[in-house]
Nucleic acid binder design. Sequence first.
DNA 1: AATATCGCTGATTATTCTTCGGCAGAAAGG
DNA 2: CCTTTCTGCCGAAGAATAATCAGCGATATT
Lengths: 175, 175
Amino acid sequence: MGKNTDDLRQKRPQPPVIDAFDRKILAALAADSGQSYQRLGESVGLSAPAVHERVRRLKQSGAIKGVHAALDGAALGKPLLAFVHVEAAGWGKSERLMQVLRFPEVEEMHSVAGDVSVLFKVRTASPQALEAFLAQIHAVPGVTGTRSYIALSTYLERPVQAGVTDSWPDLPAQE
Amino acid sequence: MGKNTDDLRQKRPQPPVIDAFDRKILAALAADSGQSYQRLGESVGLSAPAVHERVRRLKQSGAIKGVHAALDGAALGKPLLAFVHVEAAGWGKSERLMQVLRFPEVEEMHSVAGDVSVLFKVRTASPQALEAFLAQIHAVPGVTGTRSYIALSTYLERPVQAGVTDSWPDLPAQE
DNA sequence: AATATCGCTGATTATTCTTCGGCAGAAAGG
DNA sequence: CCTTTCTGCCGAAGAATAATCAGCGATATT
């Protein structure tokens, strides 16, 4: 019977260990995924094949979900960025709500804890297009209202960063 | 004197025309920037060098701002995603507020129109880390309060899409 | 201490990127 | 209406990179 534990250990989905090298690689790839493995290796202090192998594992483990081109919304004719908060009665059928994910204007959708149920990030061509989107939302059964926040200036917009702050700076004593 | 107009026309920053081919290329690159120019060309109906040239122009014009690896926040030890709304008195010096952009937890910062001034998207390792971030925000002069929305489920999170909806579906007549 | 396992290095091959010359189609001018 | 010019695409070649392999050293295990 004792041998079975060995079999189990073998099939264990191995907690993907992410060490300092992986962190550096991930940080570099999040900043710019276009550089060669050679340069990446020089940045982190590894050979190109080593980086290649680590990236392969990171992709397979899901730590790297994909590589995407970052497009400029304004250049594409969608200068209006808005965050739409949706108030819904009950935990309403979101199946109908999922339909709006088809629109390319919708970039994010989260269910949140707070005084609203769902939060959208949408990028539209015009206020009229945002209105049309809101009409779609209001048409969903159970939706009782929306609150929209329109971005005036975007000071930062970047992908998930690899770093983690483990020691937050001390705050000056409050008066 | 009339000749000067020619000189000006020559230096005009040429409105970057984005045609249907560019749209397809951008859509494909936003979905997956890892594919070869050969495959891209087959997808959109162009040769590899043609795609290469178009991508070069799109990058130079700024339509493509970069290529980034999409990382998994949870896999990196940051499972907590939150949207933090900041209420500020006046249009306060945001210079102090800009300092928080240094933290890798901060992914977005927008000034918005609505009942709050600034909106953050932050991804932290724990509720404690979020609390530490909020403490940093509250330490900024002029900040009168914050409201946080914690993501329970993320149903969609993707980069800027190339497409634009030009004909929104009709809504069923409301009762 | 011996053994097995894992990961890195260096080199090699295949694929891709990048550039070049030539040509077709469309706009500007005679 | 024809000519000229320009812009963009294609096909092919050369350079760079990606991807793979065998061998070795280190660490953990027996």
